[in-house]
């Protein structure tokens, strides 16, 4: 496993306090808490449920949407981006106060139907889209692990997400691109340690 020492502390690149999880090729994974408005990364990844499912926009995306004066929810209501499962929308150069260079919005479909397996597929979709872009830092705020989720649910979700991410890297990343990239998973759960451990376990077992 590659592990450049300068990536041990994610703060060296993004200013976000993070814990290093492990690396896969040139992708260095961290866990931490990311402010979707104030923190700055090259690519901010957020989830958006489908409007027809009457799902509320989640807390993180809601905060981001408010900072963007409702742009995300209006685009969804206007049918420009419907939030269908696996649908993606990239907004380049979002306006202030959002500090990240670009946003990747991933359609979550019916958020009430999200389980670990579907979260894994969403993570794969997000990573597939992300590796097409010229970015060196990304924060994944898909918001799949709710703050009150059980330890078992958190562990399953974390496992499936990391499998989805690594599978997407295996399948879609151009191996000629060897630039170091940092990827921070935002964890807002009482069981963040469990999620981090499960991320590490999947990384350690992944066939390189």
């Amino acid at each position: 496993m590659q592990h450049g020492s300068r990536w041990k502390d994610g703060a060296s690149l993004t200013g976000i306090a993070t814990q290093h999880v492990g690396s896969f090729r040139a992708m260095h994974f961290h866990t931490g808490s990311v402010d979707p408005v104030a923190d700055r990364v090259d690519l901010l990844i957020v989830g958006m449920p489908e409007i027809s499912c009457a799902s509320q926009i989640g807390g993180i995306t809601c905060a981001l949407d408010a900072a963007l004066s409702g742009t995300l929810s209006h685009l969804r209501a206007g049918g420009v981006f419907e939030g269908r499962f696996g649908e993606t929308l990239i907004l380049s150069s979002p306006p202030s106060p959002v500090r990240s260079n670009s946003l990747l919005v991933v359609g979550m479909g019916d958020a009430d139907q999200l389980d670990a397996a579907r979260l894994g597929r969403l993570a794969a979709v997000a990573m597939r889209a992300a590796v097409q872009l010229d970015v060196r830092s990304m924060a994944c705020l898909l918001g799949p692990i709710s703050i009150d989720a059980s330890a078992n649910d958190v562990a399953q979700a974390a496992r499936e997400m990391m499998i989805g991410v690594l599978g997407a890297l295996d399948k879609h990343q151009d191996r000629r691109k060897v630039d170091d990239t940092i990827c921070i998973f935002d964890l807002r759960t009482l069981h963040a340690d469990i999620a981090t451990d499960r991320f590490k376990a999947v990384l350690n077992q992944w066939d390189f």
Partner: peptide
Amino acid sequence: LLDAIRSVHVGGKHLDATVATAIALHVL
């Protein structure tokens, strides 16, 4: 532009945020 070409190629949508903001302001 290069990011947009690559992301649209794999099936995603890609908008300049200025345009997205303008659309959002009036789309409803």
